[in-house]
Write a protein that binds this DNA or RNA. Sequence first.
DNA 1: TTAAATAAAGACAAAAATATCTTTAAATAT
DNA 2: ATATTTAAAGATATTTTTGTCTTTATTTAA
Lengths: 150, 150
Amino acid sequence: MSCIKEEMFSKACKYAINAMIYVATLPEGVQRAGLKEIAQAINSPEAFTAKILQQLVRDELLNSAKGPHGGFEIQGDPNTITIAQIVGSIDGNLIFTGCALGLEKCSEDHPCPVHHKFKAVRDHLTGMMLTTNLKDIATRVNDGISFLKY
Amino acid sequence: MSCIKEEMFSKACKYAINAMIYVATLPEGVQRAGLKEIAQAINSPEAFTAKILQQLVRDELLNSAKGPHGGFEIQGDPNTITIAQIVGSIDGNLIFTGCALGLEKCSEDHPCPVHHKFKAVRDHLTGMMLTTNLKDIATRVNDGISFLKY
DNA sequence: TTAAATAAAGACAAAAATATCTTTAAATAT
DNA sequence: ATATTTAAAGATATTTTTGTCTTTATTTAA
Ligand code: FES
Ligand code: FES
């Protein structure tokens, strides 16, 4: 094929996760992060990132404020926000529930040929996303043991 | 967003896996499966499926023959062909090695914020694909315990 | 040797994802 | 009040993926 792709998550979703992490790394309550600052920090296209942030605001994962000193901040407790919520907001929930081979519905009753093998992997992924909270990974970034770009 | 997607594999890849499985379900040596027959069996668009089959032929996972009674057959031993090979042929190997959050390179030295959690899942997926062979899953279809469509 | 059947190849089209640009609305500070 | 700063919204553009159509090449069979 012409394609050299397939990367588990969409770009939009990756930008969303990275953006959320970046905002979560900022000291709480101090000030908001602006679009420009966020896009810079995660190395993403600014205007596209704006669309993604809007979606995260709509889904109440972020708060936003306009005007001088406006920008974005995490809505709620970073300890209780999971990667799963962010992925769900941007890419939807098919990755958690969809059939690997494209059957209309993944089920035990009418399983696709790889269902019995795939389900465990998908559940592993889902579990990982549900149990990974924003606070923990932001801390890792702040501690310099993981990185948002390059 | 406008998108309701994200499904682990591309459509092309799903068609490829399903097509390979279907061809593998046919009694060996008897006769080849034609494009029409394959697309019918896996419920995929014919012309697009043709492109995908061509790629699988190029990558020596299938043999093809033109003319009357032509068509496609598995090249080599279905016991030794893995899902990983099929996915690699169509979607490339980024799903096995790429960074979840889009860093240029996944590495322990410069890990992204979810590397430590994601790597295990990715390795689980990779291991599953490497150890799942075509023969086994085709047998399940032949035994009526799994399904190629709907 | 011709006709029919089939895949291969290439051009084209449509849809979706990604990305940008422009205008509008809201908040702040002067 | 006005100007400035910022996000929101909407229009548009580009790229990639998915899908189709037409032509060509090859094989078989009559
Ligand atoms: S039916 Fe395909 S993964 Fe469950
Ligand atoms: S660096 Fe991101 S998954 Fe390894």
